[in-house]
């Protein structure tokens, strides 16, 4: 039983039909992970008790498997009366899981900004919030564009985990076809190629953003 190209092509519409779900999950999870991760990093920098708590939380998140998060949120929370949809759990799980890693990336990006920047910002009277928004965050993003892009690709590549919750994303759809037809090579190859194309597109986009950020205004 060789590789059947026409069967492979016939699976494309079904698998491609799930690209919307994959992209939606990946996009919201990227934003969620970045938002939570940045919040973590700000709390960690503020020191005090919340700083210690966040430090522990980040280590905890990074030391647990992403599947454990998904199972916990989906199967254990309902036991305590919190019932979330599969898509919500998937997005929440990926956001929390990757926020731990992104917090570290943000830390490196902020550590690389010279201390004189926040001093100059205070000296012209900007508030703490304004300093973060207008001085620290833009320079941080410029420092971490490349690793941040890598994590966005990682988040995209982690979306198939949602298959365990029966969220109809691309790899899950491919696997459903395989289970129905007992032909694995074709649908899984198609899903693999589509993931590859998506990942390449994201890294190209990130590279462009990076060049733009670095090009005009190198320090």
């Amino acid at each position: 039983m060789g590789f059947d190209l026409s069967f492979a092509l016939s699976t494309v519409p079904t698998i491609l039909g799930a690209i919307g779900t994959t992209l939606l999950v990946a996009l919201i999870s990227c934003l969620g992970a970045a938002g939570i991760g940045f919040g973590f990093e700000m709390l960690r920098r503020s020191g005090g008790l919340s700083g210690y708590a966040v430090r522990f939380l980040i280590d905890f998140i990074r030391a647990t498997p992403v599947l454990a998060w998904l199972y916990f949120l989906y199967f254990v929370l309902p036991f305590y009366g919190i019932r979330l949809g599969a898509l919500t759990v998937g997005i929440l799980g990926l956001s929390v899981y990757f926020s731990g890693y992104l917090a570290e990336v943000f830390k490196a990006g902020i550590d690389a900004i010279p201390k004189g920047q926040s001093e100059a910002s205070r000296a012209v009277g900007l508030s703490r919030i304004d300093t973060i928004i207008f001085i620290i965050a833009p320079q941080m993003l410029r420092n971490i564009a490349a690793p941040l892009g890598n994590y966005f690709v990682s988040i995209l590549k982690a979306t198939p985990y949602l298959a365990v919750l029966a969220v109809p994303e691309m790899l899950g759809q491919a696997f459903d076809i395989a289970s129905d037809t007992y032909r694995y090579a074709e649908p899984l190859t198609v899903a693999g190629i589509l993931f590859l194309l998506l990942a390449l597109a994201i890294s190209q986009a990130v590279k462009r953003v990076e060049t733009r950020l670095l090009g005009s205004n190198r320090r």
Binding site: E119, L126, R218
Partner: peptide, 27 residues
């Protein structure tokens, strides 16, 4: 009080004009 630093500490991601206008607009 205005402060001028040894290492300038201009904001590298903003134009010269924006360096000057940021505090006027935000503060």
């Amino acid at each position: 009080t205005g402060m001028v630093f040894q290492s300038f500490n201009l904001f590298p991601h903003l134009t010269v004009l924006s360096n000057c206008t940021l505090a006027l607009r935000r503060v």
